[in-house]
């Protein structure tokens, strides 16, 4: 229970397509608020200082570090998290990450997928170098990245050939 002197913020926003309203300590980051208040634990806190990319979410359509945005700053905005992120790119990437073992522990995976989806929206057939470059702010300790690049390239190919359900 919060003590009465903790400054709070009122937040009303859209999260994964649903209107929500609530309060958060003013100093709480958006990713912490999503995780603790809304139970959306798919976005992870890997560093809390904007380096690792595990906390990526979409804020008004743009992929951002959820640990570098205050919860109060989402007031009036639309937030999407990995749990309900929409679009054919995300669907194709999920399939491809599973098929290519583009994940091991899975902690970085939600951020990776959102970041990769942004790339595929912009660039339907990226080279392996372009994939690596676009993911260069997302840290994975497990895979050595190779199979992540395989997965993104394969998702791109699947989208190009129209072979993705939910598109």
């Amino acid at each position: 229970m919060l003590p009465p002197d903790e400054p709070l913020a009122e937040i009303a926003c859209t999260v994964n397509g649903r209107r929500v309203a609530g309060r958060a300590p003013l100093r709480q980051t958006l990713v912490e608020w999503l995780r603790t208040e809304l139970g959306l634990t798919g976005s992870h806190v890997g560093c809390a200082h904007g380096v690792c990319g595990a906390c990526h979410i979409r804020l008004d359509g743009a992929v951002v570090r959820g640990c570098l945005v205050l919860a109060v700053q989402a007031d009036g905005s639309a937030v999407e998290t990995i749990e309900a992120a929409t679009g054919p790119e995300v669907a194709a990437l999920r399939e491809a990450f599973v098929a290519h073992a583009g994940l091991q522990c899975g902690f970085c995976t939600p951020g990776m997928i959102l970041q990769a989806a942004e790339l595929l929206q912009r660039e339907p057939s990226p080279s392996r170098e372009a994939i690596r470059d676009h993911l260069s702010g997302n840290y994975c300790r497990c895979t050595g990245y190779h199979q992540i690049v395989d997965a993104v390239a394969s998702a791109a190919a699947a989208l190009q050939s129209g072979g993705v359900e939910g598109a």
Binding site: T41, G42, E83, R94, L103, G106, T109, P110
Partner: peptide, 14 residues
């Protein structure tokens, strides 16, 4: 892996 790619991982802090 199917659970993890959907944000369904349940780590300690979850």
């Amino acid at each position: 892996a199917r659970r993890l790619v959907a944000g369904g991982g349940r780590y300690l802090d979850d």
